[in-house]
Amino acid sequence: MADVAETRKFIEIEVLRYRPEQDSEPFLQIFEVPFTDDMSVLQGLQYIKDYLDGSLSFRWSCRMAICGSCGMMIDGKPRLSCKTFLRDFHPGRVRVEALAHFPIERDLVIVMDDFIDKLESIKPYIIAKEPRTLEQGEYLQTPAERDVYEQFSSCINCLLCYAACPQYGLNPEFVGPGIMALLHRYNVDSRDGGAAQRMDVVNAEEGVFNCTAVGYCSEVCPKHVDPANAVNQNKTLSAKDYFLRFVTPKGGAR
């Protein structure tokens, strides 16, 4: 039987570092990390933090692709580091950077204040169409009604779609793919009556028309939400309202 130490595999992880108190700009640092075939990129980073450089900063929580914390650029593509495996890059080197299009707070940690602000602005909760009392019971919905929004409700706010969206990178004012998916999720929910309020965000200069249908957001989404579809369906809705608001009795969105 071969010696365990001899069969141990190593991979080079190249990490984009940025320590605001001492670096004027980010730089790449290479770590050599022992790994096994079942190790994720996140576990590789945890190895670095535990054994090689305790100052490395990154966000993570669940390790199972549901918390949405560990999104990073891995080999230039936005991915969840817990769902990406080191073995797929071996024997090459794997480069890990903070999510594109966001300011870097420190190392692999990005500033996500903009996303949180936008999330609040779309009222991401059901605004009951016909409020019911407890005595009246629950809000019922058919499977078909549920099917309309279900895919969009799978969003875990991981921001990979923002890192995939060049239009957001070019103009951070743009509401962006993930927020539009969440907005759409509530607007098309049969129990919700808040669409008119949310359409102001859709119709605004910062709204859906900044999208040029690159479509990469939907490619990188780890939850198959298809945010590009939410954005583009709302272009049609917004344009319809733009032209018909003067002829429809209630002025559409308002």
Partner: peptide, 16 residues
Amino acid sequence: MKPAGKRSNAPIFWSL
């Protein structure tokens, strides 16, 4: 929370 901005006139050009 920021309020929604001015309405875009993009629908004209986008439709064409």
